[in-house]
Design a protein around this nucleic acid. Sequence first.
DNA 1: TGAAATGTTGGGGCG
DNA 2: ACGCCCCAACATTTC
Length: 462
Amino acid sequence: MTAPVLLWFRDDLRVADHAALHAALETGAPVLPIYVLDDAAPWSMGGATRWWLHHALAALTGSLAALGAPLVLRRGPAVETIQAAIAETGASAVFTGGMPDPKSRAVDKALAAAGVALHRLRTFMLFSPTDIRSGSGGPYAVYTPFANACLTREPRPLLPVPDRIPAPPPPRSDRLEDWRLLPTRPDWAAGLRATWTPGEAGAQARLDRFLRGAIAGYPTGRDRPDQAGTSMLSPHLRFGEISAATVWHRVGPGHATFVKELLWREFSIHQLWHNPSLPDAPAKPAFAAMPWRDDPLALTAWHRGRTGIPIVDAGMRQLWQTGWMHNRVRMIVASFLIKHLMTDWRQGEAWFWDTLVDADLAANAANWQWVAGSGADAAPYFRIFNPVLQGRKFDPDGAYVRRWVPELMRLDTRHIHAPWEAPAEALARAGLALGRSYPQPIVDLGFGRARALEAFAALRAG
DNA sequence: TGAAATGTTGGGGCG
DNA sequence: ACGCCCCAACATTTC
């Protein structure tokens, strides 16, 4: 009997367009699918992504069963756990994919050094970081040339779902429930359940809905948190329930604005590939000298959506309740935390890591650094969002604020984004007592802006 | 994938 | 008719 090969699922929990699955099948050997939960620090999975992972693994188990294969679940340090699985099954090779983050690349290296025939296929990215290089041969430091380089090529053709996966007799598997990925006491996942359908079928349905609807108005609709103008594919892409290549091909060439968002994600992954310390240190070293403030009360107010700035609080509460925040609002809350509150961007990165269902190491790190000004092609330090103006521009009727900050429900639209400026009669009409039923702003926006500009200017002066 | 300050222009009210 | 001022609208520069 021929030795099996392991098909090691990582951030690619699907059976369609799965290059590692196809490579494993092409060996002709029996294929044993396995998933390993490795909680090693740093950057072990946060709470919201653990919730998603549970459901994604349950869905993948179903998809594989329909193809005649089990999904073996194991928990432990990845290198030892894979080696143990090889020893138990006599596997001759390992086929895998996923996000090429520093930890998983180190694991690959260790396994290869131990003599494991490990094949990592590209299941997560559109293009290889070694292929997308600037004229001088280095990685692109600016987004637009990066995107243009990608747009001159095509992702590889899509791979079909196989008819069947010939599997060997399975070794023992953990029970998914025993991993305790779902919250209990308190069960904070009600809003997540109401918002999402994790799994490959849910991902396809989400894409279908987007292609039928919002994509037509995407160039402007994507900026409106009060409307369903975005694809909401991010957590599905995070877990590889749908491949970026599938989205690229199905969207087609007529929707450049959306494809460029896929490429913004790609840019983040490539940045992390080239710079393993991206999640932990400013990419521009000068920013290490930034005099960040340590203000636990302000940080907690930001976490809980109690800053007194309506669009910020709406975004933070949407995040807390649904595990997701509209992209425009992510920029606003991040700019507020970093600039008006002068908080180290890593504090925001850590919170998003724990609360976002779509948290991935590359996008989270690259985008926080982008807002901070310390990353690739970053917003210049002096670009400071005014949350009041942003609110008026992108949530003109206040519907988004009212949805997530119900205290402000009855406030007139002309005051909804700056209740502290509302006359007493307007507050009384709305049943609002600032400082009691809704907070006063925890920082004066003009003061915060001036303080940030001063600090950033000092940094620049050296 | 800003915002605010500053500068410029031109229409209209008014003496 | 003319100059003056105000100010909105837009453009430029500065942070």
